[in-house]
Nucleic acid binder design. Structure first.
Lengths: 113, 113
DNA sequence: TCATCATATTCCGTTATCGACATGTGTCAA
DNA sequence: TTGACACATGTCGATAACGGAATATGATGA
């Protein structure tokens, strides 16, 4: 089997630099496809395709305005990523705490002598 | 051109579910390859190859102990991910703040009438 | 209705990724 | 030294992702 489908989850959708660039371009607010094309100097079909992927995982939402399509971020969908990261922050802090305890114990023993 | 190399950055390394599972397995602490194989019921070569990818982006570190190889997390390497996420939290909060201001303004005008 | 603008979709060739299997490397113990 | 163990690496086939070019869709305006 090859790599898991890019549309399956947020992690895969974010694996591509271009898609991250598109998201970055949308931080400042809603934008039409053409505006993104101009900002990033990518081809229009490429932008549309990446937007489709981002849509499918819910990271962006689309709104029709005349013949333009305005895309905007849906940052709430980054929550799985945040939660995943949190586990590691906790692990890291726990480890630092243990290290801290250890150092304190060493110091206590040193004082005792 | 196809997808950017998986070894190029943390985002690509995390795109694969198996690799995330391996990292999860290491949260509790240092483990030998065989232990990971047992925990996740993946083939040994598969685990080794994923560990190699994770090594190359610095997400895990390896220590030889006899004929075992002990792998451990290097959670500091998740910082690029954290920083990237932070941008979006800020954007989200700013947007909520603006929304808040707007609602307050509406309310103020309502009271004024 | 027809032309045009904005965007989406399709087709295609290249390339990377992944898993399975086989094999190589290095360490320990007898 | 030999064999067993723990792990790394290499090869292969299938799959799917990516970019580019062409084309389709759909709204607007003359």
């Amino acid at each position: 089997m090859a790599r898991a489908s890019t549309t399956s989850d947020v992690f895969n959708a974010l694996a591509d630099v271009r898609r991250r660039e598109i998201l970055d371009a949308l931080i400042s607010g809603e934008k039409a496809v053409g505006a993104i094309v101009d900002d990033l100097s990518m081809s229009q079909p490429q932008v549309s395709k990446h937007l489709r992927v981002l849509s499918e995982v819910g990271l962006v939402r689309c709104r029709a305005e005349g013949r333009h399509r305005m895309y905007r971020l849906e940052p709430t969908r980054l929550r799985p990523l945040q939660e995943w990261l949190t586990k590691y922050e906790v692990a890291l802090h726990d480890r630092l705490d243990r290290m801290d305890d250890y150092l304190r114990e060493l110091q206590r023993q040193g004082e005792g002598r």
